[in-house]
Nucleic acid binder design. Structure first.
Lengths: 233, 233
DNA sequence: GGCACCTCAATTGCATACACTTCACGTCAT
DNA sequence: ATGACGTGAAGTGTATGCAATTGAGGTGCC
């Protein structure tokens, strides 16, 4: 919610920056997020930083413990399972809503995104994963259902986080071709095929969640956030 | 989220109070929620009231507009449709997870709840609606999937709100018998039947959303909140 | 009467102050 | 060494203050 990119919305800006930092694993699960440091880093008071943390907590990306420093959540394996279950249902719904109803301009938009994914394929894997995640969010946004967009965004980001915890290191080949296949099926209005593809695609992704977690290490917050603070002013 | 009934969590308490006030229609869609009045009413500072509003906004119950007084959301008809769509998917998932896996003590708990629904049947319809909503949340909580609980809670509350806007006045007979039938099917482990029943039940409820909205009227906040402030200390 | 404009009380946006809690570290007894 | 304990720095919880924004009502002009 409150996803309006208004220039005055400092909380939203910090949220976006942190969200990105988290899903690109610049901030790993377990990383501490003290209100002071955050505020200092983004040039706002603790009040704002605190609000941002509250927001991210409500999205399930940050864990808020009373009187303790907030941390990036470390999803449990069970959480991961649950989240993927829900995700499958929601993405089925999206596919059902979208199949055969996408306008050419939307198809183009999707293909552009996939192209970007292909381009980023050689770059840092964190970026690939983020783009793959954002493909699904883009898809969701085409349903024109704000609620659906919100839930799928949240869940997709959390999946992203989970994958970073449990998946094998070199899983950057996140099924770009599968994305293309899904677009095609949607374009053809082939609901069943699209749903099957999506299901398989997500299953594929979920099945990577079978390896040991990596322990959280503690880098300096200021360093880590440097590249993300830029766009906030 | 942050649903831990800790005695120190003032924000959570205010949220719960407001949530209840909203879904029981003591606070109607469009009702204004100024931070000052809220704080005064609950004996806390604006800071806390503000946080509570933020939380409720992230749940979609309250609308936060920059520099403007927060208001209880007025769901659009389209929103309502979207929310019901999502709800159906999620409740299908719940049923699938639960069928045949409920322990006797859980069944008992559910039946107790339905009994409470029956008892409240003659009372104010707002209470019946709340109880009917909470039945679904209780069901969700038995999946032991925090994420699912959160989403279903949010959505169910929003459905509740929507119904209060669009449904016919005397819709208190909210399908208590249907709740019982669902419990039975779940107990028997009859997944298909349970899913069908749930689908029908929700469809029934959703189909009430076909009448004109009632305009928001403005009662005095302090009066309206009186019965809800009690349990916060 | 109706409409544009102005003014000010009401309200939010944000920062800061202070009390309380937690945690890390150092001390001391064993 | 080791473990209990105490202490202070770091951090959060909450209230409050001040500036900026809004909008409701009044005023004057048409």
């Amino acid at each position: 919610m409150s996803e309006t990119p208004s220039p005055k919305d400092k909380v939203g800006m910090i949220c976006r920056a942190l969200r990105r930092a988290i899903i690109e694993q610049a901030l790993e699960p377990g990383a501490k997020l003290p209100e002071d440091s955050l505020g200092e880093r983004f040039g706002v008071s603790r009040t704002i930083a605190r609000h941002a943390l509250g927001q991210l907590a409500s999205e399930g990306l940050v864990e808020l413990r009373r009187n303790r420093i907030a941390v990036v959540v470390t999803p449990s394996w069970q959480d991961a399972r649950d989240i993927f279950d829900i995700r499958m249902e929601l993405e089925r719904l999206i596919v059902r809503k979208l199949a055969g109803k996408l306008k050419p301009v939307q198809i183009a938009r999707l293909k552009d995104h996939v192209a970007a994914e292909q381009q980023a394929h050689d770059g840092p894997s964190a970026v690939s994963i983020r783009l793959a995640t954002e493909f699904h969010i883009l898809l969701a946004s085409m349903t024109n259902s704000p609620v659906l967009v919100r839930y799928v965004s949240e869940i997709a980001y959390r999946c992203c986080l989970t994958l970073s915890l449990f998946s094998r290191p070199h899983s950057s080949e996140c099924g770009i071709s599968e994305h293309i296949a899904i677009i095609d099926a949607l374009q053809d209005g082939n609901v069943e095929k699209a749903m099957t593809l999506m299901h398989a695609h997500l299953g594929e992704v979920a099945n990577r969640a079978l390896v040991e977690p990596s322990p959280a290490r503690g880098r300096d917050l200021v360093d880590v956030l440097a590249p993300y603070a830029e766009e906030t002013h």
